[in-house]
Design a protein around this nucleic acid. Structure first.
Lengths: 258, 258
DNA sequence: CCAAAGTGTTTCACTTTATGAAACGGTGTT
DNA sequence: AACACCGTTTCATAAAGTGAAACACTTTGG
């Protein structure tokens, strides 16, 4: 996918590495701490932040710390494909979230990971904090396993060759044979379940979204605490998710992939 | 605000100038045409795009053209302040849009312009295409005039000194004295109207969103074609907008500015 | 009250890095 | 077969970024 031999502009790489340090957990950085974090020289970090600030990509707060700026928000909102998806899925996933009373995510397969495109929060105080635009491992999530299970066989095998089955909890599938068996189960039952495979106490259930050719192009999942989860409610969860899927499949019928 | 003397990293500036060429009107570019557009050398453009592609900031489509990529979407979704606003206003502005049956925008004053933070589309086929993250002139929009009218007097005067009253249509206010009079009218009547001042055939109405101290921090507006607009419906429009404002003012009561 | 330790910022000799004209290897068109 | 277009690569040249150290300032603590 990426050719490491190709010459890339180091300054640009550094600039984006700086931006990548601004996460949901840490939204503002000082020059020195950011230099320490990224390993760049203090001067370099300062000048890059200064450049980014002049472009409104970052913003220097009154306390001298830097945060991400409005221009980045603007550019993010221009990413055509995701913008279209966000717009057309806001309503259906919101309705699903209201009915199912758990956090609902719309996700796709991207670079051997699960990529979350849109989200509707649960109204409960206790909810997962996965965010839009973030990635999660394929093998340890309901969405990931489902997307992989429903992928074409050759793509599935390619991905299975590349990914590492890293252990996230004691319930994570770390064995290739077990994972393949799980994928078969998911394909036959039509939904995927993740019971504490990625995070202890967290349960997810996912079902596919297909285009008019019947190929999977995305999935929708509901995630919540184990304490609220009841096995006997699975058909009901699927039923609610399915109502959202029907609407979204109409929107996505002509897509080959998202 | 920005110091032109300060040394900035040219490569980074160029990289973002390239990204800025990707608009809602033109979402994909080839190397040569983008080089032509930005004035950069073909090689430079190519290498920068290559760098950005390796970071997933842009994505090279199968037809060899480049589009904005998922990483930019991800970064855009990390801009903390706007993310929080987007989240808490999605529902109220959506409800307003449904009831008022026109496109609804949530906007703030930023860098002497109107900055649109969130949007709910009208269900009508005919609707404005202003997008989230975009800017519009203060003096030629309902939102802009309203935000300025309700601003503190010293801030208002500062802005009035700096902005150009550029003519957008034959109805645009291009005279400072007329604009000041209009601001007074808006302040006393509590809402702002824009009838074809920015674009022919386009009408907007805006009302303020204030914090608990009573200071304006944002505004909400409805925009639609002149053909659907009736003067006698203004009280009804305001009434619907007001219902959304009440909910949002609860969310924003502790903000000093957005 | 002054010293120490923190911050963001500026400087300047050094050298790494980006630059751009031209050539390259494709593909599609006339 | 000649042309025109595309993205890509090359390589000598020149410009640009680099980083240690100094600077100016604020906050902290004995």
């Amino acid at each position: 996918m990426s050719d490491p031999d190709k010459k890339v502009n180091q300054s640009v790489v550094k600039a984006f590495a700086l931006l990548d340090a601004f996460t949901n957990e840490k939204t503002s950085w000082g020059v020195r701490e950011l230099a320490l974090k990224t390993g760049y020289n203090k001067s370099t970090t300062y000048r890059l932040l200064n450049t980014l600030a002049s472009l409104n990509i970052v913003h220097q707060n009154s306390n001298e710390k830097y945060s991400l700026g409005s221009k980045l928000f603007e550019l993010g909102n221009r990413v055509a494909i995701y913008k279209a998806i966000t717009k057309s899925t806001n309503a259906p996933i919101k309705n699903v979230a209201l009915e199912i009373q758990e956090t609902v995510l719309l996700s796709i397969l991207k670079e051997d990971q699960v990529f979350h495109i849109n989200k509707a929060d649960s109204l409960h105080g206790l909810k997962i904090n996965t965010s839009i635009g973030s990635y999660q491992p394929i093998h340890a999530t309901a969405s990931g396993k489902l997307l992989l299970a429903f992928s074409k066989r050759d793509i599935q095998n390619e991905i299975l060759k590349r990914i590492q089955l890293t252990k996230a909890t004691q319930h994570t599938i770390t064995n290739l044979k077990s994972l393949k068996k799980e994928l078969d189960t998911i394909l036959s039952q039509g939904y995927a379940l993740d019971v504490e495979e990625f995070e202890l106490g967290l349960v997810s259930i996912a079902i596919p979204i297909c285009n008019k050719s019947g190929n999977i192009i995305a999935c929708i999942s509901a995630s919540g605490p184990l304490s609220r989860f009841r096995t006997e409610n699975i058909p009901s969860y699927i039923n609610i998710l399915q109502k959202g899927v029907i609407i979204m499949e109409e929107e996505f019928k002509d897509f080959d992939r998202l």
